[in-house]
Amino acid sequence: MKPSPHNARGTKPQRLSIARIGIYVFLVVSSAFFILPLYVMVVTSLKPMAEIRLGHLFALPSSPTFEPWLTAWSSACRGLTCDGVSAGFLNSVKITLPAVTASIGLGAINGYALSFWKFRGAEFLFAVLLIGAFMPLQVFIYPLVRISSGVGLFGTLPGVVLLHICFSMPLMTLLFRNFYATIPVDLFKAARVDGAGFWVIFLHVMLPLSVPMIAVAALIQTTGTWNDYILGLIFAGSDNVPMTVLLNNVVNSQFGEKQYNVNMAATILTGLVPLILYFSSGRWFVRGITAGAVKG
């Protein structure tokens, strides 16, 4: 038994051990690696092209300018059209808002039904939904193109919104089913004893309890829909092009010398909405990931 000095009293004085220093060093270096691209993005977007050509990637702008931002927003060129990414912003909003609302609603109803109302084929349905959530989009594209043009929805806003709803529904259902599984079934039974039916229980009992889950789902789904590329590329039509598609066009189809500062400004603008959501959401974002990713 190793004793302390005879007059030891109170809290032991802390000495910073090598191991502890090592941990902090690793974390700080790693953080630098992760922040670096963000830093370079911002810094590049504020430099005039002349300064960028000098090649000092990490240097702060010596004569910062907001020109690239204005250009990116309203007059950046993609191919022959030069109207910036602002139109994309509006389109992304028009796609995201209805898609997120509807898929959360459907997911909640489905999760509720699967969780509390055991019916034949429920487990099977759920398993298929689950598998469907992971399928590569490429497997659906050809049939969907044929169907949507047949129905007249190809290249329209309702069409692309509908597709987003279809493809986000499985994950939403999974999230809500797992969430409702944590609600004591006695609550449900008590409501049934009181005489409430399917919709009454859902609207008056379950929905009010679901607010935290709705927040999490909204966060995850808004980020996912906003960041989508393929569905927007194929199904949105030239009138409803979302921001991600516009961004890719701006960055990768410029004639002549590439306007790197404009590109970076456009990139930041496109990533702004998810980033703001992320940074203001605190732990909710993490909760969403663990709810979906860590099953069971």
């Binding site: 790693s30 953080s31 992760f34 922040i35 691209p37 963000l38 370079v40 993005m41 980020t223 906003w226 960041n227 989508d228 590329y229 991600t244 598609v245 961004l247 890719n248 960055v251 590109n263 970076m264 456009a266 990139t267 496109t270 990533g271 998810p274 980033l275 959501l277 992320y278 940074f279 974002f285 993490v286 990931i289």
Partner: peptide, 16 residues
């Protein structure tokens, strides 16, 4: 800090 890139679109990541 280490999670924020996950919130970004692959297009944004690719462009950067």
């Amino acid at each position: 800090i280490h999670l924020f890139p996950y919130a970004l679109s692959f297009i944004v990541t690719g462009a950067v």
